[in-house]
Amino acid sequence: MSVLIYTENQDGKFKKVSFELASYGAALAKQMGTEATAVSLGQVEEAELQKLGTYGISKVLNVADQRFALLDNQAMAKAIAAAAAKTASKVVVLAHNNLGKAVASRLSVKLQAGLVTAAQGLPSSLSPFKVSKVVFTGKSIGHVLIHTDMKVLTLSYNSFGVAESPVSLVVESFDPGMTDSDFALTVEQTQKVTGKILLSEAEIVVAGGRGMKGPENWGAIEELAEILGAGTACSRPVSDEGWRPHSEHVGQTGKMIAPNLYFAFGISGAIQHLGGVSSSKVIVAVNKDPEAPIFEAADYGIVGDAMKVLPQMIEAAKELKA
């Protein structure tokens, strides 16, 4: 019996979320009186694999097969299922992001496991297995019972955090028995924006709404984000107008985010928007309208013109980071 986590990688390095998963897996294994194992798919540098030990992972099954760079959901589910069988794992944990969600749903069918997505924190009880999850896009929390012997979870980002608990790590090569026909997806072209902070993993997010008046005013948002090492986001009307790409839209029909710090400039805070950002630890709102609902959700606020406040904040950010 073991807890298995799937650690995602990109360009030979683990994504930040993988270390939160490792921390979570180690804590869950401790709660269950067992060990935490990781499975890594695709080519990851040896030094990266070793980092998992810092977060309490005692073994990593390393599937150094470059075909996994295709991110073929079907193939990934097959490989993780094989790793779960190999380690006799009862609980498998993935990240609650686009990839994790897509793979976990397939995996749960293969393992005949109960699936809870967007789980938050450790289970409050192991028998019965009870864990909380986000519902109604952050407007509420549900307590879910899993009735099956096998369990698959996707963990909400930043809901557990990163915790070091160093153990010695064994890297073991693992062959999940993949064939070429398992990889039925053809990648034709990849467009990547380099140097951008991933919105799903950003600790700080700077967002703008219709109150920013037009795409030409986004320079200040991007400047503040760059100084703070933050991701950039926007409200729904902004992406609908085409001022910003859909991938930046946070809210009910866009992304749910949970950074430590969220800035909302010129965003009124419709209920759909608040749902997507209310898990942020600290919310800062700047809006002209003192009655804007965003101030109900905000911890810090300024009733005023975002275009006047942004330069002051940029100035302060430069000083603080200097």
């Binding site: 929390i141 019972l145 009735h147 911890d299 300024i302």
Partner: peptide, 21 residues
């Protein structure tokens, strides 16, 4: 395979600390 046992609403936020423009 899974069922909701109960729900809760998120805890109410403390009042927003306001600064001037």
């Amino acid at each position: 395979r899974v069922s909701f046992e109960s729900f809760e609403l998120p805890p109410a936020k403390a009042a927003c600390k306001k600064f001037s423009e």
